[in-house]
Nucleic acid binder design. Structure first.
Lengths: 242, 242
DNA sequence: ACTAACTTGCACAGCAGTGTGCAAGTTGTT
DNA sequence: AACAACTTGCACACTGCTGTGCAAGTTAGT
């Protein structure tokens, strides 16, 4: 008897579906209008405002759900991303973010306003840490600019990436175009010339461009001809798509 | 009798001062919280909410005032900025923007929300045009990246600049540091390596760094050893300061 | 010192949003 | 078929904001 601990019956199937619908609706609505009303969310989800309260006690609770989901989703994706070459690392992080535009955007959007700032901040912390680390290493290696404090630079890269995410959606670029742009702009802000950035992007097993073998700008370090970081680039066809 | 056309008496002196105080307060308040209440603005201005309505018929009217002021202010400053070398031009625009952080930030902040989008857009149009033009020329000259549509690139530069403005305020950089950062990040996004960007920045009559004579990356064009675009860099000690 | 201009506080109407209770419906599950 | 789970619509209280009217105070200009 597997269900003796939970109250008599399991939650109904469609109820769960609706819950998902609400979260999804909240994601799309709050992305463009962080202050949108629950009415708007309900409409987007095809439900009544009243029934939202059947799933979430308050607006903030819904927000919190969005935040934690987005956060864990991102850190999961990011967990598999690492490379010794900070340039490649940065590019990979960019690509990983691109695969999660929706989530990232909601987080970033919500980051600005109100008391959830703290929650958002910790949700984004893994990304920040990853970027900060890469920046520090890149500066040490002499590839990235050293005329700004690393944390500042990291933040700028982060914000530039968000800008690209927005712009990519607005100008609706194709998946590969977008991914490439996130990577190269990040590297540009880090300090690379656009040609070098492009070279790094090309060196990756991207869906479009054929991978050249070595990095032109690479001097000494670990020039092990790019071990296969293929794991990070697998895009599992957004399960949240309507 | 010089005042027969206007109603009996001219507006009182302190009333004008208060009006200014309100606008200034609105600028600072709305910069960090675009949806802030008039109560907040009043508090910042040291007045009562009620008396705001003595100067502005509605919240929107106050907003409109902010917008048009910011817009005209910026385009005035930008009017004197031009250079044949698109790299320098971009840097100069960055420096000019830096001198007007307050205004720019308010505009950009307000750009996102609501029905004033159109007003804001046209207020920022001169900046956009200037940047777009420089980008096009820079791409043509082979200095800037040509793998993205110019308008997209222009927008990205714009957003990166805004990000720098924010970050500079947050990490409170000194005036010259901030100005330099706006310039170099803009150029980075455009495609230059950070060294080249720094070289361009150094070549300008900046308040800190001594100007080196020529541009390392400069090949042929108009190498007339930098005519004096000093006009753009004059910072007239923000008159709006409290 | 007088007056008009200006500020202030308070009261009030109105609007939009949140969160709750309840009674009546609909629909999944057994 | 029956029951519980779920949704819905409506009513309601509450909050925070805008915008207005008015009466009383304060202050700049003459």
């Amino acid at each position: 008897m597997p269900e003796t601990l939970t109250p008599p019956r399991a939650p109904r199937k469609d109820a769960l579906e609706n819950r998902e619908a609400i979260v999804a609706a909240a994601a799309t609505v709050f992305r463009r209008e962080p202050e949108a009303s629950l009415d708007a969310v309900a409409a987007e989800a095809g439900l009544s405002r009243r029934s939202i309260y059947g799933h979430f006690a308050s607006r903030d609770e819904l927000l919190a759900e969005l935040l934690t989901r987005g956060g864990s989703r991102i850190s999961t994706v990011l967990a598999g991303v690492h490379h010794d070459d900070p340039r490649i690392h940065l590019a990979l992080v960019g690509a990983a973010l691109w695969a999660e535009v929706q989530q990232v955007r909601v987080l970033a959007q919500l980051a600005v306003h109100g008391p959830l700032e703290r929650t958002v901040a910790e949700a984004l912390e893994p990304v920040r840490a990853s970027v900060r680390d890469a920046v520090t290493r890149g500066v040490a290696a002499g590839w990235f600019r050293d005329d700004v404090a690393p944390e500042t630079l990291a933040r700028l890269i982060e914000e530039a990436a968000i800008a690209v995410l927005d712009e990519a959606v607005r100008a609706d670029l194709t998946e590969p175009e977008g991914a490439r742009l996130v990577m190269t702009i990040g590297l540009s802000v880090a300090g690379l010339s656009w040609q070098s950035a492009a070279a790094v992007a090309d060196a990756l097993p991207g869906p479009t461009t054929t991978a050249t073998d070595a990095l032109p700008g690479a001097t000494a370090t670990a020039s092990t001809a790019l071990p296969g970081p293929t794991t990070a680039l697998s895009t599992p066809t957004h399960p949240r798509a309507k």
